[in-house]
Design a binder for these strands. Structure first.
Lengths: 229, 229
DNA sequence: AGAAATTTAGACACTCTTGTCTAATTCGTC
DNA sequence: GACGAATTAGACAAGAGTGTCTAAATTTCT
């Protein structure tokens, strides 16, 4: 625990713990109560800190809110890119691998705490903070969707899929994987593992009926072996 | 989209006109500001009515909110069922007819004022009024989805489609038709006609790649002609 | 026109929330 | 143990919003 602590710049450890606790609690409360419905006392109580500490850390309610959204966007993006990196570029069993990928995407990025909170905050307050959520749009969907599309393009190029427009296919893949979870999402619920698996399975099957090829494996794997570097 | 809610300058005349104006304005404001963020004065001003009149009509803020949600649910359901009744049971051009149906669904039920407001209110306040939104769930998706599924089942039975589980297919149809509108919906925007058409076209094409049959038309239309009353 | 009902503006008490301030206390470090 | 920074509880003023009340004005019905 001994880094060279210059007392002005680097705050002590308890400080950071409290900061994190505030972020956690604020996300929870803003998400549950909406910005207007949330109050600082509630957040303070849930974070286990005094109200004044929140003002010390973040200045005011609005700055706190902005910090939360930025934080969530960042963490969600990290999760999405981490998950994208597990995309099955050289699938052994295309259906099974895509289903597993879809499940990972859902569990790690969409159904988890951060994903749920960010989604709710965007839906609830998006219109009130245009520039903040424009930023999310650029950093989030604007970057992740093309990344997924690129993976599908590669899979198509390797002969596993028959796709004309990878961007469209990527969006449809996600839409299909979530098709059966929409109502639950709407009401703020968290689908069970079973529901996620079901939806992903049905979604991927339909996706492959639309974009799959008969027997791509043998030929295609040569291609992808060359292409992948 | 003719809601003649002229603001403060021209107050609506008559008891019923005022009631309607209040409902309109309250939907607008609750949707824009969330329940906690909305205030009665704002609604009164937007409705062109005095604050007291709102209290006379609805008792308190919460009762007003509940009335709004009930009203929106009812109107949306009516719209959805009306649109479902235009489902192409005996399509001339399956792709074109399904695209047109998807566009109607979007424009009349999902992108229109009521659809947008109801969606937003459910997302924003769903967790706070479990019984109210459980009611929506039963009356809304609980009734409309099976109705759409039944139409797809009929279409499959008539030989136009190759569907195992009509319920799954129906949900996937809707998910595909909206696949490219998700981000816009998230931020509370209204997609342009062009975007709706694009998304529907791509969605239906993929849907038909998955569930379509080669050349069902000739044979199938006999079937459906016999089956149809 | 007259009576009944509705609507209106404004004032009002009450509650809740924000953000500040202060003085006491705790925490981490030396 | 001592020092300084961070945290705490509590009080506080200022502002906003709810829901009630009243008396006057307006509309609607007869």
């Amino acid at each position: 625990m001994k880094h060279d602590v210059s007392p002005d710049t680097i705050p002590p450890r308890g400080h950071e713990a409290k900061r994190a606790s505030i972020m956690d609690a604020a996300g929870e409360v803003f998400c549950r109560e909406s910005f207007a419905g949330a109050n600082i006392d509630m957040i303070a109580a849930e974070a286990g800190v005094s109200r004044q500490t929140i003002y010390n850390h973040h200045g005011d309610k609005e700055k706190l809110f902005v910090a939360i959204v930025r934080d969530l966007t960042e963490r969600c993006n990290a999760g999405i890119f981490a998950t994208i990196s597990t995309f099955p570029d050289q699938p052994k069993n295309l259906e099974a691998d895509l289903i597993a990928f879809a499940v990972r995407m859902n569990r790690n990025c969409i159904c988890n705490r951060d994903g749920k909170f960010l989604r709710k905050l965007i839906q609830t307050e998006g219109e009130r903070y245009p520039e903040l959520f424009a930023e999310w749009r650029e950093q989030g969907p604007g970057r992740t969707w093309p990344a997924i599309a690129a993976r599908f393009a590669r899979l198509a190029h390797a002969g596993f899929l028959d796709i004309e427009d990878p961007d469209v296919a990527a969006r449809q893949f996600l839409a299909l994987a979530n098709a059966e979870l929409q109502t639950t999402f709407m009401l703020g619920g968290t689908p069970t593992n079973d529901e996620v698996l079901q939806s992903a399975t049905h979604g991927v099957r339909t996706f492959l009926r639309a974009f799959g090829k008969g027997q791509p494996a043998a030929d295609a794997q040569k291609h992808s072996a060359l292409a992948g570097g």
